[in-house]
């Protein structure tokens, strides 16, 4: 049982500092969770600490790939609006700089 970090992650370090199991480390392109160390905080806290502080929706997922902070759950921006913006961003993806 372990959580993992998706490419939505912005490498802000917040989860590293609050993980009670020191299971999270800097990695490329995004931070990574050591599945041997991660306990999903089940014994330690009522909420998985990485997911409780993560500012990015859909960046932390469980073993089934279900985000602990789904789209629209952190910013209050309506989901339809976010999906609209995502669609525009994918269509007009500029070359990465």
């Amino acid at each position: 049982m372990a959580l993992s970090i998706t490419e939505a992650c912005v490498n802000c370090w917040a989860c590293v500092d609050v993980c009670p199991n020191t299971a999270i480390h800097e990695s490329d392109p995004v931070f990574a969770i050591d599945s041997d160390k991660c306990t999903e905080c089940l014994a330690e806290f009522p909420e998985a600490q990485c997911a409780a502080i993560c500012p990015i929706e859909c960046a932390i997922v469980d073993e089934l790939g279900t985000p602990l902070n789904p789209l629209g759950s952190l910013t209050g921006i309506p989901v339809e609006k976010l999906q609209e913006l995502l669609a525009v961003a994918t269509r007009g993806q500029p070359a990465s700089t």
Partner: peptide, 14 residues
């Protein structure tokens, strides 16, 4: 200091 412990509506961490 990249980590934050609050969200402000005028900030986007991405």
């Amino acid at each position: 200091a990249p980590a934050c412990n609050i969200q402000c509506n005028y900030c986007n961490r991405k």
